[in-house]
């Protein structure tokens, strides 16, 4: 029996094994599958963006497609090329798509995943229900293009995504050179849902991003305490309100 016959009988078929999802931090974020990263409160989008860029620094090289809804981009700003350069060891090629509606944004995500032309799709959307996430998860698994959805703090409920993270900023690390200046950024990342490692669900990570070594490290709860003590306030004779 030759190969063609085997194929027609369905005994032999192409198997595209999904890449194994690592069961350790960051649980495949930016490497495979669909992941949701949500804000803990309004205004935490910068922390979400920082976390995503930090966690994807080992992503496979290639073009990125950054999809956002116009009204969200107007409210939360856009990711600057300079910051991308400062946070990624190898600068990715980035294409931007701005859509009017949520449906168009999700359609663009799926289209990009199916095309296989990009190595990572990041979408900033206002919501994504179970059906949409299920659809994107299947497409992402089938075509091997990871997808990250950045969601607002209203993101709740069922999801088919591999993980759902909730990120809040924390007081930054002490600055070695100037105790009054902010240091390395720190975030608290809570793993709300995790399909690959169900017993990791609910784990919380206190993370610190080092912008010189481009490394993300877990800091202990003690070190992640309150900010470094400030020197005593100097007497400031003139404090005035400048419009």
């Amino acid at each position: 029996m030759d190969i063609a016959t085997l194929k027609t009988k369905g005994l032999l078929r192409a198997v595209s094994a999904a890449p194994a999802m690592p069961a350790a931090f960051p649980f495949g974020l930016g490497l495979a599958g669909l992941h949701e990263v949500a804000e803990a409160g309004y205004g935490d989008r910068a922390a979400v963006t920082g976390f995503v860029l930090a966690a994807t620094r080992q992503a496979k090289q290639g073009a990125w497609l950054w999809i956002s809804q116009t009204k969200l981009a107007g409210d939360l700003g856009h990711v600057s090329q300079a910051a991308l350069r400062q946070m990624q060891a190898v600068m990715p090629q980035r294409l931007n798509v701005e859509t009017r509606t949520l449906a168009e944004a999700l359609w663009a995500v799926e289209e990009a995943v199916v095309s296989g032309a990009v190595s990572l799709v990041i979408a900033e959307v206002e919501a994504a229900d179970f059906t949409a996430t299920r659809r994107l998860t299947l497409a992402s698994g089938r075509y091997g293009v990871p997808v990250i959805l950045m969601m607002p703090q209203t993101c709740e409920g069922a999801t088919a995504a591999a993980t759902r993270w909730r990120i809040r900023p924390r007081p930054s690390a002490p600055n070695r050179y100037d105790p009054q200046a902010p240091g390395n950024p720190r975030w608290r990342a809570v793993l709300e849902r995790c399909r690959t490692a169900p017993n990791a669900t609910g784990a919380s990570f206190d993370l610190e991003w080092n912008d010189e070594t481009l490394s993300l490290s877990v800091v202990s709860g003690l070190a992640a305490g309150p900010a470094a003590p400030r020197p005593a306030e100097r007497e400031t004779p003139a404090r005035r309100r400048a419009s």
Binding site: A46, T49, G77, S80, A82, A83
Partner: peptide, 13 residues
């Protein structure tokens, strides 16, 4: 892109 510049914010309004 220029190298000699300070830290830039990740999100620009």
């Amino acid at each position: 892109l220029r190298d000699m510049q300070g830290l830039r914010p990740v999100r620009m309004l």
